[in-house]
Amino acid sequence: LPQTPVRTAMNTIQQLMMNLNSASDKPSDNLISYFNNCTVNPTEGILDRVENVGRIFKERFAKAVGQGCAEIGSQATNILIYCVFESNYNFNFMNLLQEEERLSVHNFSKLLNNNDFHMSLLACAVEVVMATYGRNASQTDGMNIETDLSFPWILNVLDLKAFDFYKVIESFIKAEPSLTREMIKHLERCEHRIMESLAWQSDSPLFDHIKQSKEREGQADQSEPTCT
């Protein structure tokens, strides 16, 4: 059948729902073994953080969609929360596998206790579902959203720096084989938008990043004897 915008939308939502079928809201045994390898076990912090993000998102989403769409809002929220759980843990596990192979490290205590990393990952998972459900829902049942929920709405909701969100996108795409082509293109557009404007806002961590790499370059120059 020819792909109409509505049919594409419905396919994407169906794909998302299929992903959720295998959703689990608890970390897998493999992932728990990584957590147990950490100097400081991150399990409690991760579970608390996911619960907090779910609560904050629920409030802000309900406020944004207006009372008229409360039911769709709560449906979307429930889908979102489960997808975030599954995506979060799945990504963690896949990413740690890659990092373990790449760095030959087994103790990821620093990374798994890094708040910016986890918040960026959760925001990325939320953005995927929002982009799938939000835009498509408005196409399919004319949901009248009072606030624009498209990117970078989630960064403001979670008080997250765009540059930190940018850092997880590529690894997220690598670790999440079930992402649809549309979703990958959407995340790539987010990347471009961050690099073109959002990352250059005055309080962005990008400036520290540039400063530190310049300092590292400066040190590298000094360490070379001039005669070479």
């Binding site: 890659q98 990092e99 790449r102 760095l103 990374l111 850092k167 590529e170 795409i173 992402l179 790539e188």
Partner: peptide, 21 residues
């Protein structure tokens, strides 16, 4: 995914990006 432009270089990953290496 073929049509995504991976930009991380060799030796760069999520651990380095978050200064957790």
């Amino acid at each position: 995914p073929q049509d995504y432009h991976f930009g991380l270089e060799e030796g760069e990953g999520i651990s380095e990006l978050f200064d957790c290496d």
